[in-house]
């Protein structure tokens, strides 16, 4: 739990640091998260449904830097595992890791939306 800002999934230290007190810049990064991550989550769900391992790797690879930037640390290792073992991992394990990532990203997306609503609208 990121106590100061009452968040569980995300940590806004990097966003605050790059924004340097500029609210517009901060909202730019938060909006971008809200625009890009749900779309990529849908792509990930679809790829998992279709057992499309190459697409799973590509979606995760694309998302990974933004998730690191938003401090969602405990899914970085599972993402890296999926990126490197996507073609050898058993489907059961792949599905379990994928679902855990989806759960955490849905939580992170909700938190970002709440922050936008409560602080910037």
């Amino acid at each position: 739990m990121n106590k100061e800002r009452n968040t569980t999934f995300i940590n806004l230290d990097n966003v605050i640091s790059i924004s340097r007190g500029n609210t517009n810049r901060m909202i730019k990064y938060l909006n971008q998260f809200q625009e890009l991550i749900p779309e990529r989550l849908q792509q990930l769900k679809k790829a998992l449904d279709n057992n499309d391992r190459k697409q799973i790797r590509q979606v995760l690879h694309k998302m990974s830097p933004q998730l690191q930037f938003f401090g969602i640390q405990d899914i970085i290792k599972p993402i890296q595992r999926l990126e490197f073992e996507y073609d050898t991992m058993s489907f059961l394990e792949l599905e379990a890791l994928g679902n855990d990532i989806i759960y955490k990203l849905e939580g992170a997306t909700k938190e970002v939306s709440q922050i936008i609503e409560s602080h910037f609208e």
Binding site: I18, R20, R25, K28, Y29, Q32, F33, L36, K62, P65, Q66, F69
Partner: peptide
């Protein structure tokens, strides 16, 4: 091709 990366790098370079 990632708009987040473009923005982040742009901000860091500008700053």
């Amino acid at each position: 091709d990632d708009p987040f990366i473009q923005e982040l790098l742009k901000d860091k370079l500008n700053q």
